[in-house]
């Protein structure tokens, strides 16, 4: 554990908490992509199957449980409790176009061809692109509430911090995982446009509004 990894995990946790707070306080999931949230639930479940096979640390186990539980709580709020506020007309991204290619890629490019490892690899590829339905929704509506912007910023920062963690681990421990690094870089690149808007608009107190 190093400072970048810890900061990344905390940023990830903050993102999830911000999202739950936004939905709970406003009693609405307007502006949030249920499709992205479904993909994140798939990511956590397929990645954290090792909860039952491998013990890393108490921290690791607890965080995995928090990520799985909170993603299902988010889905419950969106698709059951505040279903009426769900923006499904704008949330029209076809997630099978992400799920299938990620799965095929995981079958082809993985560290070892075992069920758990292929699912882990699938989750890494899928996480890289899971935010696309959310970014698509923001681009369709042309705007995002400030708390949604903070959520996206924290969620994007998490993998960017992991990139620093991987650079650190390469030099400090000689550890690297090319699959995670490659996917993490793609994931971070997808947020760049949003980061730019966040820094130039939201941090200056303006609403995140895309140019018409």
């Amino acid at each position: 554990m190093n400072i970048f990894r810890l900061a990344g995990d905390l940023s990830h946790l903050l993102a999830i908490i911000l999202l739950l707070i936004k939905i709970w306080k406003t009693r609405s999931c307007a502006g949030i992509s249920g499709k992205s949230q479904i993909l994140f639930a798939v990511v956590y479940v397929s990645r954290y199957l090792d909860l039952v096979t491998t013990f890393i640390s108490l921290y690791n186990t607890l965080m995995k449980l928090v990520f799985i539980t909170s993603s299902f709580a988010t889905l419950y709020l969106m698709y059951v409790k505040f279903k009426a506020t769900y923006d499904h007309n704008h949330d029209s991204f076809r997630i099978e176009f992400l799920l299938l290619p990620c799965f095929v890629l995981a079958l082809l490019i993985n560290a070892s061809f075992t069920p758990l490892e292929v699912l882990w690899t699938f989750s890494i590829y899928l996480e890289a692109v899971a935010i696309l339905p959310q970014l698509f929704l923001v681009s369709k509506t042309g705007e995002a509430e400030s708390i949604t912007s903070h959520y996206l910023f924290a969620l994007g920062s998490y993998r960017a911090l992991y990139l620093l963690n991987w650079i650190y681990r390469y030099y400090a421990e000689g550890h690297y995982d090319l699959i995670a690094i490659f996917a993490g870089a793609i994931q971070t690149i997808l947020y760049c446009d949003f980061f730019y808007l966040y820094i130039t608009k939201v941090l200056k107190g303006k609403k995140l509004q895309l140019p018409a």
């Binding site: 990894r5 995990d9 990830h12 990645r47 090792d50 096979t53 491998t54 890393i56 690791n60 965080m63 995995k64 990520f67 560290a111 070892s112 758990l116 490892e117 882990w120 992991y162 963690n165 000689g174 550890h175 690297y176 995982d177 090319l178 699959i179 995670a180």
Partner: peptide, 10 residues
């Protein structure tokens, strides 16, 4: 390089 399982990150 070590492509290691178990994966120790989140």
């Amino acid at each position: 390089g070590n492509m290691q399982t178990p994966h120790d990150e989140l």
